[in-house]
Amino acid sequence: MIRIQNLSKVYKTNKQEIQAVDNVSLNIEQGEIFGVIGYSGAGKSTFVRLINRLEEPTDGSVVIHDKDITNMPKNQLRKKRQKIGMIFQHFNLLWSRTVYENIAFPLEIAGVPKTKQQEKVLELINLVGLSGKENAYPSQLSGGQKQRVGIARSLANDPEVLLCDEATSALDPETTDDILDLLVSINKKLGLTIILITHEMHVIQKICHRVAVMENGKVVETGDVLDVFVKPQSKTTKRFVQQLNPLEHEKDKLAEFINDREDSEVVKLHFIGKSAKRALISEVAKTFDVEINILQGSIAPTQEGAYGTLFIEINGEKEILKKTIEFMEDTGVEVEVLKHA
């Protein structure tokens, strides 16, 4: 649906060239929530601005619904932009306009008649849950409410795609979750394709179907969110995944449980998708003559299923231990036996 090919952006200053976006190619499917994650300076913000040509690409092409954005003349591009919604980190609302007037603004630009404007604006206000706030000014709203106005505004002309540039980065964790829930419900209700830029893995984990990891202007890894979570390939991706899994930071604390005895093993279990919901531990305890000591555990839900990690200590006879681990591996759970480094 959106085909991005060899997209590049070079900034030239007096003395040097900066390659902000370097030969990025991606295909984004109709109706998916596609995340782009990277540390600041990775080029992700420039990347999203190339999609609607807020920045002119140096090279490459962006094709949305078979229309090449990159070589469109200005007046055609303006029309097309009405179908590409965008929300921002700092909301970018007009302080001089009320909530109602802010949402009506893109409709005014598109030349929608007043009576139809009213219908659409009220519908959108309902959709984003701001009923009763029509006549409030942005300064009277909280951050989360402001972003809701931003979202309503971006949806006014029934866009084909919604670009989110760090849309939750200025919000507190709870409000972030509310806004993410709203984006998911819009994605489901309207079948809207969403491209989302963020530096928080939490955001990717919570709502994205697929993710691209950016570093130095390049996409270093891309794939289904769950796959990327479970088997991160690049160093950057691993760091992002660790951000989310507090246990990874506490591996040292497990050291005291790890020993060289043959009747005791410390095991790290990875539960992915459906297996995360299985009562594996009690199954094992019933089947084998072992003692299980749960050390640490966490679970993270994603759009494609849950992803959990569990550290356990198993005590028992050597042979039984071996069978137990084989049994666990057979269930599809990923098992890693921890040894001293």
């Binding site: 303006r78 919604g85 921002f88 598109a110």
Partner: peptide, 22 residues
Amino acid sequence: DKGVIEAAKTMGAKTHTIIFKV
């Protein structure tokens, strides 16, 4: 705020709209 002008551009606003409405 430059972002507000940018937002108007993303909505496909013409320059005169940006002048008179932003």
